[in-house]
Write a protein that binds this DNA or RNA. Structure first.
Lengths: 113, 113
DNA sequence: CAATCATATAAACACGTATGCATATATATT
DNA sequence: AATATATATGCATACGTGTTTATATGATTG
């Protein structure tokens, strides 16, 4: 097929596409948000720092699962931990995650203005 | 463990957590953004409506892969199609997807103000 | 209506992921 | 040091996902 779009548009598009490293980073980040359990955890931490046991109790997920997902969220730099004795408190590392969730909700639902 | 957070905080958190249907929808939506190929396609369509062949040529992905991912993006209501003869043009269904990507980029990188 | 072109689908494969059980590690307490 | 508590890890299992090859569909052209 003889490409339909003109050369100018084609090169505009090409120059607009982020480099692969960037695309992969972005995809990984959204991947960290793309699980209901992790979304739940993030929402909870929007309200308050919490320890693993409280998180699993309040969210009704088992401790192991919670711990596993917290590790992923930590790897994605979404969450940070702070140890106090035998208890580990988790909190949002970067509050901008709330804007991301809000943008997602806003995309999905007609804006309620 | 006797939960550490107080009852008030616990119930605030609980009431803040979206219902499961919502969490799943949100997770699915972010899942649609969580692949480098799809992110690439979305970025391209931010610039211009395009047909499958042009997309695969410009983005350097094969036609089948492109078609598969377009189907997923369509299922996620991110993209829409319009047929003109034998050619199918794809475009963003909802420009708010740009805000989502921007929020993601903004999360990952220190805001450049 | 046969050939061609653009796109879509099916099937297969390889790989990744979410969860839970069993168990390990770390800290505190006695 | 032995025990209890909070969290993390390893492993197994089940399920999902991205890509490719081959093939089908649907539309246009000669």
């Amino acid at each position: 097929m003889e490409t339909l779009i003109d050369e100018a548009t084609a090169s505009t598009v090409k120059s607009y596409i982020p480099r692969n490293a960037m695309l992969n980073t972005l995809a990984e980040f959204f991947g960290a948000c793309s699980d209901a359990t992790r979304a739940k955890i993030i929402c909870a931490l929007c309200i308050s720092e919490m320890c693993v046991t409280d998180l699993s109790n309040v969210l009704n997920i088992n401790q192991t699962t919670c711990s596993h997902q917290l590790r992923l969220l930590r790897a994605a730099d979404i969450v940070q931990q702070r140890r106090e004795g035998k208890i580990v408190f988790y909190s949002l590392k970067n509050r901008k995650i709330e804007d991301v969730l809000a943008a997602g909700v806003d995309f999905i639902f007609p804006e309620s203005k």
